[in-house]
Design a protein around this nucleic acid. Structure first.
Length: 633
DNA sequence: GTAGGGTTAG
């Protein structure tokens, strides 16, 4: 008895006698700790915090592991207040917990999204190790505070703490460009940490995000042991960089390596299908995923795939059945309807979205404006644009302005569109002007077109289409000198020409047709069939429209290059090979030329086929001689 | 003991 009393300081004795009055429990320190430990183990937060209060009153400490477990319990329950009580307790009486517990506290504030509190704590800590720094860096990186993440990496270096694989795998995401990325990669290799799978998957991912897929592939190919996430990184990287076919090949490789596809994998596979318009493969993925639990991201990708493969019925049925829908699900569906020419349904869906209590974001509004512009709903579009900030708190961005230029231009209000661009709060870019140029073309306004084309070329001197258009305009007006100058400028700028190509899926195979390329095995047969078809259509009044051809070709040669545009070859291939009841679904890399558009309309009538062609911006559903775009595109 | 990588809409 005596010895026990002697071991307690007078202050502590005083405290315990006070607490005795309010909390008539055990006085014995070991019993108090036992109580505390017991409640922590039982994950009984209120009782544990109560017991902690008694420890506090008696100036007693439990062991670090128990505290750490209790803090984790707070995190899992979102108990911020309790977490702070523990923090105060650990810092009471001028104590500072060991770095391990400090790290647990740091992590707690991070999980509570209190980055400022975490930052303060880190500043205050006497000892900071690699875990402390990594906790902060990872938090900044996840919160997309990239500058802060990189800044803390530097602070860490300056303090003489070296990053490890945990640090690198989380800081890589925060790279602000290729230069930083290369520096980090060097550091990783020098420290021998590049054998870590986490670091590797982060490297693959970030290289592909910065458009250096080859470096990502290099990292991937050097790996001896790969896990599911590394496969996902490379497949996702390929899919996001429009290398759908390579992504699908990689997916095959992954299956060969014995990995079952996870939801993230299938999301990327769907993205690849979307990019390649592989509706049938997309359907197979769908059939595969309906068996598992509904994953929102995956289902959103499914929606997008159906929309972008021009199958609105499938998209709608998925959308109707989805138990949870977020702003992306709604925006995908609204944009999908709009792009497929179903304007009124798109606007109706926007109303339903608002009714359902999901707040639209800037991308949702973009879909709505797109719908208005493609249906000539000038007033509705203007209203939406003018009220987006007031109603939804969304500032119009460059793309919203672009949609408005399109809206005015399409409606033939070309002067107003020019005025609108001059009044924009954001500097117009080449895309803005090019949008208006397209409208000038449709409405055949030469005067404005010349002005607009010059604006485009000021901002993008490499734009092939604009040179050609401008020189065609001059040539048609017999202004040969001007046309010649445009041609010279084009040569001086070494404008690159992107070859037009189209592709179509048949029996799980993609058939690609590139302008001027005869490598398809059946190309001769296809060309023969195409010529027969053109003859048949000529009987219906089809005359090739040569205005859409390059200026340096003449007469018959002009018509010949037009004759074999890749979308025509793809259409004929589809007619020859796909069953009559199936719509022809064709994808192309460039915008439609007017001649091919007319051609497709006539074919849909002459052959009674439903033809769906996707250009880089929208869809054209050809049925019975009419296109869903209403001949505006 | 505490810190880490991949997936969706324009």
């Amino acid at each position: 008895m005596k010895t026990i009393f002697r071991s307690i300081t007078p202050v502590k004795l005083l405290r315990s006698s006070i607490s005795l009055a309010t909390q008539p429990l055990s006085l014995n320190p070991s019993t108090l700790i036992d109580d505390f430990t017991k409640f922590c183990n039982q994950r009984d937060l209120p009782k544990a915090i109560n017991a902690l209060g008694r420890l506090q009153n008696h100036g007693i400490r439990a062991d670090a592991i128990t505290y750490s477990e209790l803090i984790k319990l707070c995190v899992s329950k979102g108990a911020i207040k309790e977490g702070k009580i523990i923090h105060n307790h650990l810092y009471s009486n001028g104590n500072e917990p060991a770095v391990f517990l400090n790290n647990v506290l740091l992590n707690m504030y991070v999980k509570f999204n209190s980055l400022d509190k975490a930052r303060l704590l880190l500043d205050q800590m006497r000892e900071r190790n690699v875990v402390s720094w990594t906790t902060m860096i990872s938090a900044f990186s996840k919160a997309k505070l990239n500058e802060e993440a990189l800044r803390y990496l530097v602070l860490m270096y300056r303090e003489g703490v070296m990053p490890n694989m945990y640090t690198y795998s989380s800081v890589l995401k925060a790279c602000d460009g290729l230069e930083t990325l290369r520096l980090l990669h060097c550091g990783i290799i020098k420290s021998g940490l590049d054998s870590d799978v986490f670091v590797r998957s982060a490297l693959i991912d970030i290289y592909s995000k910065w458009g250096e897929l080859d470096n990502g592939l290099l990292v991937f190919n050097e790996m001896i042991t790969r896990d599911l996430i590394v496969w996902n990184s490379i497949i996702g990287g390929l899919a996001q960089n429009d290398k759908g076919d390579e992504a699908l090949n990689m997916f095959k490789g992954m299956k060969r390596a014995g990995f079952p596809a996870g939801q993230a994998t299938l999301t990327s596979v769907l993205r690849a299908c979307t990019g390649l318009v592989l509706l049938e493969l997309g359907r197979q993925v769908h059939a595969h995923v309906v068996k598992s639990e509904e994953d929102l991201i995956l289902y959103n990708a499914l929606l997008d795939m159906y929309c972008k493969c021009g199958s609105l019925e499938d998209a709608d049925s998925v959308f109707q059945r989805m138990a949870n829908k977020d702003v992306i699900s709604w925006s995908t569906m609204i944009a999908g309807l709009a792009q497929n020419g179903q304007t009124l349904k798109a606007l109706k869906l926007f109303d339903s979205m608002k009714d359902s209590g999901i707040a639209p974001n800037s991308i949702t509004i973009l879909g709505v404006l797109f719908a208005c512009s493609h249906a000539g709903l000038v007033e509705d579009g203007l209203y939406c644009f003018r009220s987006m900030k007031r109603l939804f708190g969304i500032e119009p961005g460059r793309e919203h302005y672009g949609c408005m230029v399109d809206l005015l231009g399409r409606a033939g209000k070309l002067d107003e569109a020019v005025q609108f661009i001059h009044g924009m709060e954001i500097q117009p870019d080449a895309v803005t002007w090019r949008t208006l140029l397209g409208a000038c073309k449709v409405h055949k306004n030469v005067e404005i077109a010349i002005y607009v084309a010059k604006e485009v070329l000021k901002l993008d001197p490499q734009d092939e289409g604009t040179y050609i258009l401008l020189s065609n305009i001059y040539a048609n007006a017999n202004r040969w000198e001007d046309a010649g100058e445009v041609r010279r400028n084009m040569r001086d700028q070494r404008v690159k020409k992107e070859p037009g190509c189209s592709w179509i899926e048949d029996n799980k195979q993609v058939h690609l047709f590139v302008a001027g390329d005869n490598s398809h095995p059946n190309i001769d047969k296809i060309k023969t069939e195409l010529n027969l078809l053109i003859k048949k259509l000529s009987g219906m009044g089809y005359v090739p429209d040569t205005n859409f051809v390059l200026y340096d070709l003449e007469g018959e040669q002009k018509e010949d290059s037009l004759r074999y545009h890749s979308e025509k070859l793809a259409i004929v291939f589809g007619l020859m090979n796909l069953p009559k009841e199936k719509p022809l679904r064709i994808m192309k890399n460039l915008r439609f030329c007017g001649d091919c558009h007319t051609f497709a309309k006539l074919v849909s009538k002459a052959e009674s086929r439903h033809i769906v062609i996707r250009d880089p911006v929208r869809f054209h559903h050809f049925k019975n001689g009419v296109c869903s775009c209403g001949d505006y595109w």
